[in-house]
Design a protein around this nucleic acid. Sequence first.
DNA 1: CAAAAAACCTACCAAGTAGTATGTGAGCCC
DNA 2: GGGCTCACATACTACTTGGTAGGTTTTTTG
Lengths: 213, 213
Amino acid sequence: MSSEKSQLSPRIDKTGNIDILIAAAECFMEQGYHATSIDDVARRLGATKGRIYHYYRSKTELFFDVHREGMRRNFEAVTPVMKGPEPAAKRLSAMFRQHALSMMENLALEAVVVQGVEMHRFGATTPEQRRTLAELMTVRNDFESLFKRVAYEGVEDGSIRTSDVSVAVKVALGAINWLSIWYRPRPAETRDDREILADKIVGSIMQGLNAPA
Amino acid sequence: MSSEKSQLSPRIDKTGNIDILIAAAECFMEQGYHATSIDDVARRLGATKGRIYHYYRSKTELFFDVHREGMRRNFEAVTPVMKGPEPAAKRLSAMFRQHALSMMENLALEAVVVQGVEMHRFGATTPEQRRTLAELMTVRNDFESLFKRVAYEGVEDGSIRTSDVSVAVKVALGAINWLSIWYRPRPAETRDDREILADKIVGSIMQGLNAPA
DNA sequence: CAAAAAACCTACCAAGTAGTATGTGAGCCC
DNA sequence: GGGCTCACATACTACTTGGTAGGTTTTTTG
């Protein structure tokens, strides 16, 4: 967690300082992006503006990197369970479960991801910002496509039945992303508690509310 | 819609001017609350600040009233179908359906509702704002309770089966509220189109993704 | 250990914005 | 038809905040 200082792709490693990202994410979650001043983030870090502007050229770039880190963790959580010999419905369940757990355990980052990128559509002025924006939207679509693909496999192997895969996936992801609105960890919460909640959510998504007969 | 000028409860009728609420909602949806200046809203109205401050004492109050109007329409859409002789599962389906349609047809208002009130927790300084805030949170809870109540009825009459009613309702409402993120009306969209989408969503929520056997 | 670079901090400015104070025209009331 | 109120518009202020320029301390390097 501290050894990958300056190697690897320059793309992802511009996240010079994970502390800054976390502090920013927490501020953005609590007050929203625009209501958060750079000084707010700095104060939460026990530092000053200087530190932040040493790593990020603008507030917008800081936001973008928070978003990137959130999405990175989403992929990290989901991709390991999406392939395998099981029927697609099983794998899709596992993906939902992992995503729900990731939402809970990276709450601040994921709240920023959910808060979204749409807001910046109008504010993005420079060409570079527009390109970054497009990149982030692509990443989001790719993430959703992961689920769609497995869902389609499920339709083909008969383990999933739905009238519209695209809508069904949006419904499921909406239900999970909604965690960022209402879920707040209780003081002495354990991993077990989170897994129980994740299982209930996945159960609701997969079985629905109707009695089987 | 224009006759209730200065009668009735002073609480709800402070919505002196629905045009202002709509314009504000659209701005808030596109740019977010804090990024929207009062001048932005005024410009969209083809007017100036003066008009807005004539009806609302502060930007915060304007936001609160947008939220109120959004919630009012939510109740308006759902309450007519929540009672009746049908089994609870049927009624709950109808409620979800109505709510989804309300989300689509009042997109801007509902996007503000979804964007939420949590953001203002820290910013609310005056005692009156804090009281208003508490009021809005109560209304939100009441709305969710509507669904919970019918869901419980469903558990009792056997038309609904779930491991946790509270979680199941949050999952369902999350799925529907998520519409405010991804749904945008296509140019020549009809009421039929929206009903088809709503039915697909409700189907997903009620039946889930698993094949019935 | 000197020097260069990295990692910050301090002080400042220009731009944008919530809110106010005042002005004004149109309708209404008697 | 004169006064009064409503429904805005205009002009301005006080304050916040993103970003910058330059200084200082700590770490790395040769």
